[in-house]
């Protein structure tokens, strides 16, 4: 029973961080119909930026997000300008997979040249310490990461539902053509959305880098997991990303603890197939196809 509770707690804490990494992916798809395969590499890029700030400038990992988030926003804008906006409207989604994969390889190559393939990990006092609560050791890094994920997801929610720009995003998300007709600059909204989608990985990347040794190639293991989360949650749904990420990690962690680690992914993917069979659009996805 203790293993079960430990698995549940661990799943919730780590799931929120994965939700943060997946949030940008689902936001970008929702507004732009772009499947950003480079999201995993952007997480790694964020981890490296945090590493540089911590090691060379002595900036705390959480404070560093104030710098890495704008930096990644600019990276997102640049990638959109250089590659994404040039994609033809026809086959945009399919082409985006190839183009963002190429972006991932470019970013990975640049990181390899700068940092080499040697693994590094982010360090701070809260990375290896924990506190005791109700019979469990709760690592500070996961608790802080969970808190930050909740705050940032709430901020994204408020931006989407309480601001004029958010209304533009949601309008573009529902129907790009209609949004254009009512005067929304859909291209500008798309560019900013891509920037925001990449920027939110800054926080997830920092926690990833603090809990895992990483090198420039570490993004590939992540992307399959992030795609699974957004597909389960429903492409374009922020709430879906949160619920799916926490569900995924909880299922995996509980199965790993109670049954066998070898079955944890099998059980999750079996559940994913089952959900998609019953609800092809995912838990919170739209059941209609967008009018282009």
């Amino acid at each position: 029973m203790t293993s079960l509770y430990a698995g549940l707690i661990d799943g919730v804490l780590t799931g929120a961080v994965y939700a943060l990494m997946a949030a940008g992916l689902t936001l970008i798809f929702g507004v732009m119909d772009i499947i950003n395969i480079a999201q995993g590499v952007f997480v790694v890029l964020a981890a490296y930026l945090s590493y540089v700030l911590a090691v060379h400038f002595g900036i705390d990992l959480f404070v560093g997000i104030l710098f890495t988030m704008p930096a990644l926003f600019l990276v997102g804008i640049a990638v959109d300008w250089a590659f994404i906006r040039r994609l033809p409207a026809r086959d945009r989604t399919t082409m985006s997979i190839l183009v963002t994969y190429a972006v991932a390889i470019i970013v990975e190559g640049v990181l390899t040249v700068i940092f080499s393939v040697n693994y590094v990990q982010l360090r701070a006092w809260y990375v290896t310490r924990s506190f005791h609560l109700l019979g469990f050791y709760l690592p500070y890094i996961y608790v802080f990461g969970f808190g930050m994920a909740v705050v940032l997801m709430a901020a994204i929610y408020l931006m989407l539902y309480r601001t004029r720009f958010g209304r533009s995003i949601r309008a573009s998300l529902q129907n790009r053509q209609a949004a254009r007709l009512i005067g929304i600059n859909v291209d500008r909204v798309s560019t900013l959305t891509f920037g925001i989608g990449v920027a939110v990985t800054a926080a997830g990347g920092m926690v990833f880098g603090a809990t895992t040794a990483f090198n420039p190639n570490s993004g590939y293991d992540l992307i399959s997991r992030l795609l699974s989360i957004v597909i389960l949650g429903g492409l374009g749904s922020m709430a879906g990303a949160m619920v799916a990420a926490i569900s995924m990690l909880m299922v995996e962690d509980v199965v790993a603890s109670v049954w066998s680690p070898l079955w944890s992914e099998v059980v999750f993917f079996a559940a994913l197939v089952l959900v998609l069979t019953l609800r092809p659009q995912g838990l919170f996805g739209r059941s209609f196809s967008r009018a282009q």
Partner: peptide, 20 residues
């Protein structure tokens, strides 16, 4: 004595079980 997938990205539940 447990086997875990080589592609795993979250080892904490396994490590916690070992620690226990």
């Amino acid at each position: 004595s447990q086997v875990f997938p080589a592609e795993d990205t979250d080892y904490s539940p396994i490590a916690q079980d070992v620690a226990a």
